[in-house]
Design a protein around this nucleic acid. Structure first.
Lengths: 219, 219
DNA sequence: TTGCAAAATTACACTAAGTGCAATACGTCG
DNA sequence: CGACGTATTGCACTTAGTGTAATTTTGCAA
């Protein structure tokens, strides 16, 4: 009863309203996932989810923009933001590619992703066309996040194109790493695959003794 | 009036049925695009498209799996297949990356993509969330096509991981090239941007004097 | 406590994509 | 012609998602 002095300007107190909101959000996500796992994604209607979560169908859309978002929220809890921060923490003494690589590596090493948790989502997503596609789109977001970080670290305009390439390669490596990780059923920690992918990347570029333009198609 | 002798057994004669089918398909795509351009994608209903194409709504789904497919058909007319073929035509004397690069380069150089044509589709696609996402997914297809070609050229199992990386980088380069091309309003031919992207790629890897693992996080 | 404003929740009605089904029209070929 | 398979259609139905307006809940201050 003594805290109402600072009212809305207090920064970290979240209040009852926000707590309820978070609870409801979580309940929807929880029940949604549960239903997806038992009945399958397509066979689960929003009506069913709403009922299981104890809300009306209309209210669902107050919390999620679409049915797909339930799974996306599970799969990718603001990873792009974290990624951006991880890259930004790197020193600019190294090359942009190394900065991206090490940021990615530290992130995956520090928060070892639980395979069993991931696998469940993975299975659901890969069984559905539009979900698979949405999943891919998330990598574009990640790429943008990495590029944003790199661009902040090396703001020179003439470097931007190169940084885009670096972001593309880094996130591409992450994607391939996750593919391998999934193919291996999560045998080894994700970070290992990331490291491998980057090593492979370095190897493949230097290789072939093709410094300038190889083949025909000269300019 | 004298050509109906050879009927169906002749390999390339397509007959009335097939011709009608192709015509209808084209008519739907044509009218669909026209309506999208005038009224906008979302505001154009399938009823409107069907009516404009002189078919029933139900018949539309006999030709296209979804509304989105109309635009996808315009944008990407079996490009993945062509890409795969172009890479396969390359010699295995060069490195996989160079093979992918040169295949891509020859393809974009030989069939110079008309910017004005592309731009129209581009604008429509980028104005719509789900279309943008579907567009991204097309790159995954392309990546698979390049990988398939490379994998056929270098079938050794221990190389597959590297080939995936190469496919990822190559198609990534293509994507960035198309982005630049769009950003530049198609000033220079697409092939130029592709070449630049690959050059950038080579440059960024060698750079930084970071041969092995830079930064901390080393093993 | 009361009252007010904003946020949350809901009901209702509506649009539009996409599917299943069964009937009908049409092209192909014997 | 006549039969077979493909194309076309109408109809009914499901479901995601939106607009709107009414209603309830919550935060806060007088």
């Amino acid at each position: 009863m003594a805290k109402q002095v600072m009212k809305s300007s207090s920064r970290k107190e979240e209040g009852l309203r926000e707590r309820k909101r978070r609870e409801t959000l979580h309940r929807i996500a929880e029940q949604g996932l549960k239903l997806f796992l038992t009945r399958g994604y397509d066979a689960t209607t929003l009506d069913a989810i709403a009922e299981a979560a104890g809300i009306s169908r209309r209210t669902f859309f107050y919390y999620f923009k679409s049915k797909e978002e339930i799974l996306l929220a599970w799969q990718d809890g603001g990873f792009s933001e974290t990624l951006r921060a991880a890259v930004l923490e790197q020193t600019t003494k190294q090359s942009p590619l190394d900065a991206a690589r090490n940021g990615l590596l530290e992130l995956t090493a520090r928060f070892p992703v639980d395979y069993k948790q991931t696998k469940v989502i993975e299975r659901l997503m890969s069984a559905n066309e539009s979900l698979r596609i949405r999943q891919q789109a998330k990598y574009v977001e990640k790429e943008a996040a990495v590029f944003a970080a790199l661009s902040q670290m090396w703001p020179q305009p003439h470097r931007q194109a190169a940084l885009r390439v670096v972001a593309m390669m880094s996130v591409g490596a992450l994607r391939l790493a996750m593919d391998s990780w999934n193919r291996d059923q999560g045998k080894r920690p994700l970070a290992v695959y990331v490291k491998e992918a980057f090593a492979c990347l370095n190897r493949e570029i230097g290789a072939g003794a093709s410094r300038k333009a190889a083949g025909r198609s000269g300019e």
